[in-house]
């Protein structure tokens, strides 16, 4: 947690983590609710964007991922640490891959690289993984699909910001 983020910053950002007021002047309304000026709120919100506290400011659509019905977690065993970067970048270069990371391996978990692979069906995702495996020459891999989802939420950072009262 960044030390320079004050409780007042958290109060402002708490107003941005859901949907902003649906009025002609949303920032003036946020300012009024916090006892600040509109100019100050606008300047701060822009500053938070410049500091990369948020990735984007805008609309999240309900159907923005429509068309991709299946996604699988591709896991890849690359014992040679020195080649993980090159192989990871090659795996990431597939357009069907949205995320690609290196993560630690464990006893019984011999995988080092993780890729989220998207397709229309599970079979298509497996086919993409096979092409990926041929491209990078890694034969020890698997694709895991989610069987059951128990929880999926967006993080409400500012409801739980240390030092800030929950509002």
């Amino acid at each position: 947690m960044k030390k320079e983020i004050t409780p007042q910053d958290a109060d402002i950002m708490a107003q941005l983590q859901g949907t902003i007021p649906m009025t002609l002047t949303p920032f003036a309304d946020i300012a009024a609710s916090l006892g600040l000026t509109e100019e100050e709120v606008i300047a701060r919100v822009r500053d938070y964007g410049e500091k990369k506290y948020y990735r984007r400011f805008g609309a999240t659509l309900r159907h923005q991922k429509a068309g991709f019905r299946a996604n699988g977690m591709g896991i890849w065993s690359v014992p040679d640490q020195a080649s993980r970067k090159e192989i990871g970048e090659k795996l990431a270069s597939f357009t069907e891959v949205s995320h690609a990371y290196e993560r630690p391996s464990f006893e019984g978990w011999p995988y080092h690289l993780f890729t989220m692979i998207h397709g229309q069906t599970e079979q298509e995702v497996r086919d993409i993984a096979r092409r990926m495996s041929q491209t990078v020459g890694i034969s020890e891999y698997d694709v895991l699909f989610s069987i059951r989802e128990f929880k999926k939420t967006s993080m409400q950072y500012f409801d739980h910001w240390p030092g800030r009262e929950k509002s």
Binding site: Q17, G18, I20, K51, Y53, Y54, R55, T60, L61, R62
Partner: peptide
């Protein structure tokens, strides 16, 4: 815009905060 928020085409209109940008830490566990 209001009609699209009301109808649900727009699920949310606000900032998408970044855990790393805020200095928080995130991890995957099994």
């Amino acid at each position: 815009v209001k009609a699209m928020v009301d109808s649900g085409v727009i699920r949310r209109l606000g900032a998408s905060f970044d855990s790393r940008g805020l200095g928080w830490t995130s991890t995957l566990c099994a």
